[in-house]
Design a protein around this nucleic acid. Structure first.
Lengths: 216, 216
DNA sequence: ATGCGGGTGAGAATAACATTCTCATTCCAT
DNA sequence: ATGGAATGAGAATGTTATTCTCACCCGCAT
């Protein structure tokens, strides 16, 4: 449609070359923002730091921040996706060793549970804090961010189903259910006031999910 | 300790009498705020109305609003507790008729699922929208608000356990798990973008929970 | 009647933030 | 070296919640 054959290849290459450096610099700046935000999250335990704080800590400027991010929301989203994606990688590694499908699934569930716990000291508040805000306002982006984990769990369920360990009609939906159950159960934990009432353990969650995926 | 016998009973009664009217007026005002907020929630489908809007609609004043509520948060909390409490009553009624414990539990699960869906037109956004914010910032209050439902589900589980339909070691924790699973599964639904991916149905959720509570 | 006190209305003032804007400066590919 | 893009510094704007000021009204004890 808008193809312009006159556009010589060399020009594209030139532009590309001159662009590459700029892109690198931009990525560095973005990374500095991301790092600063991580630190703040780790320190404060929540995601309600100020954009100004991020800017100050990264020794850059508001101007620059908004040049690289659409807003605080985009920054958090980037961190969130990254965290979930990393988590998926970790769990995948831990479950990639040989072994029966069901025990591997169990490991996955328990890892996800622990990583979703409120404050194991690290920058995990992303799982809880921001995830929930996002769930309300931008569910589509949550779906995207969940994708790596969802894929992983779907695979594990399919493998278990092939091995005949469980019944898995619609592995994808089941995977989604399991993930939600695990993550929110963890979320609702570690809270002083209601922990006396129902401090669910990783094992209980696993038993529950196991029953759920095994079929009644 | 600070008992003052000189305080004549008639004075107390007099004060009480003169107080009663004031209290009534206060309750009326509070109710007007609550009603106005309900309307706004129903209309806008979210809880991010302005305090000013509530004030305007209820034809009162900011001054008065903060006289009766500690803040917007308290207002939402009141509505939230009310909604969950009402929901518990409805579900309890629907499941109080005679019948096997398990089918009754199923009804409860399906009702809760439907009531937790994003926007069935009514003022249900409280379940999703505000509940999640609350879960992050004030988990204790969430626990309180959940209590009526938690009690109901615990009872249903216990009855099913007595009838031998399921294994229920720790009914309270199981009840909490079931509630969370159901409510969040519903929450993650009804969203255009990820509904193509995993539009979980009430029945699927029930099957999952049934498996979970039946034991592996 | 009168004056007192608490609740009320109207709306300005404050406070925290996110986001945008201005302008001067710096950086960089040509 | 130079023009255009990126950046820094920080002021300006906009939105909300929350608080404050002041005038008013109403019930009631003297």
């Amino acid at each position: 449609m808008t193809a312009i054959p006159e556009e010589p290849a060399w020009r594209q290459r030139a532009v590309e070359r001159s662009t590459r450096a700029a892109k690198q610099r931009a990525e560095q700046r973005v990374q500095r923002f991301l790092d600063a935000a991580q630190e703040l999250i780790a320190e404060k335990g929540t995601t309600d730091f100020t954009v100004q704080e991020v800017v100050d800590r990264s020794k850059q400027s508001l101007r620059s921040f908004y040049q690289h991010f659409d807003g605080k929301h985009e920054l958090l989203l980037a961190l969130f996706e990254d965290a979930l994606s990393t988590s998926a990688v970790e769990i995948r590694e831990a479950t990639s060793g040989a072994g029966e499908p069901l025990p591997r699934l169990r490991i996955a569930v328990e890892m996800l549970f622990e990583q979703s716990l409120p404050n194991p000291g690290v920058q995990r508040p992303l799982f809880s804090d921001f995830a929930l805000q996002l769930l309300v306002k931008h569910p589509a982006q949550v779906a995207t961010a969940h994708l790596p984990l969802l894929t992983l769990f779907t695979e594990l369920l399919e493998q278990a189903a092939e091995a005949g360990s469980i019944h898995a009609d619609k592995p994808r939906r089941l995977a989604a259910l399991v993930m939600q159950t695990v993550m929110f159960a963890a979320q609702a934990n570690g809270v002083p006031s209601d922990s006396h009432a129902h401090p669910v353990t990783a094992d209980e969650v696993w038993q529950f999910c196991l029953g759920g995926i095994s079929g009644a």
